[in-house]
Design a protein around this nucleic acid. Structure first.
Lengths: 166, 166
DNA sequence: GAGATTTACTTTGACGTTAAAGTAAATGCG
DNA sequence: CGCATTTACTTTAACGTCAAAGTAAATCTC
């Protein structure tokens, strides 16, 4: 029996939860684990992108644009694809634009729409960012490769059940 | 071969990543999965707590205090246990205090320290909140119980490797 | 025991996020 | 055609988070 269990905040939460006779202990443990892993992972990812003046949100936008056929997408599409609020897109594109990585372009036929178009500096940043993220294994070093696959696999069912895709 | 794969944003990201010859595709897929699951789960949890005027941060503080021997802890300890910034604790305790769920008390022997003490309304809120979260399975409905265990298990290694505990 | 250092908390400013309201353009319908 | 509705984006206000600076009290050290 490992002494370290006593220091694991998830294990401690499980103990407290049981002692209080609160329910769904397994789900609580899983939820807490997920939250903590997400926190650590995100911190590592943002740290890796920081030297480039990017955070993960900005990187995601650059990646999405660089994948697109024309290197440009309407603001709304970006929000849909990345599942973020339209206001966040406005904010993110504004910052990327200020840094010269992206430019706003009027939509040729729809006067309501604005296209965000990636600039060459943006493509470079996306490529370098992708390499930086690959270098740190997307913040997931320490997660067994087999477990990594199992997690991704296990989450497909959850995401589908919860409408992340059809 | 399921058509739905084409609509899964994670699967789409995998395709784009490969096409661009960017590396660490498996880690990218896992990281993206984790982020999306965390988002959905958090939204469900916050929605379940909203009727109580709580969010997850506030609930966590109430739960932690209700687990403590004296029903009170120094602000600093709360931050340590929940792994959040001291400024966040100040903010959260301030809101809980405004709602009458918690009160600030001077530390009996250390003039620098402030104790946050849970009030009876706070204990009630914690208990009701815990029941609400149990009701929704901590936002993890749709995650196979077996997979839930595997995920928690797989993440222990990651968290330990990344200093979440010793 | 006086001065330097450490510790505990609060304040401030920045960021990313959301919901809700606002503006402007396109579309639908009678 | 003309008006109502929908769609696309921006603005605003609120929240939670963090880093850094500020304040105050405790502790260390010579």
């Amino acid at each position: 029996m490992s002494r370290s269990v006593a220091h694991d905040p998830v294990a401690m939460a499980v103990g407290n939860w049981r002692r209080s006779e609160w329910n769904a202990v397994d789900a609580m443990a899983a939820a807490t684990s997920i939250t903590r892993v997400h926190q650590v992972m995100t911190a590592r990812i943002d740290a890796a992108l920081k030297p480039l003046g990017l955070n993960f949100s900005r990187f995601e936008v650059l990646a999405l644009l660089s994948f697109s056929r024309e290197g440009q997408l309407p603001m709304g599409k970006i929000g849909d694809r990345l599942q973020v609020n339209a206001a966040s897109v406005t904010n993110t594109i504004g910052r990327l634009e200020a840094d010269g990585l992206v430019e706003r372009v009027a939509h040729p036929t729809d006067g309501r729409a604005t296209l965000a178009r990636i600039r060459s500096a943006g493509r470079r940043a996306a490529k370098i960012g992708a390499a930086a993220l690959a270098d740190i294994g997307f913040g997931l070093e320490g997660l067994d490769p087999v477990d990594m696959g199992s997690v991704t696999e296990a989450f497909v069912g959850y995401r589908q059940h919860n409408g992340d895709f059809d």
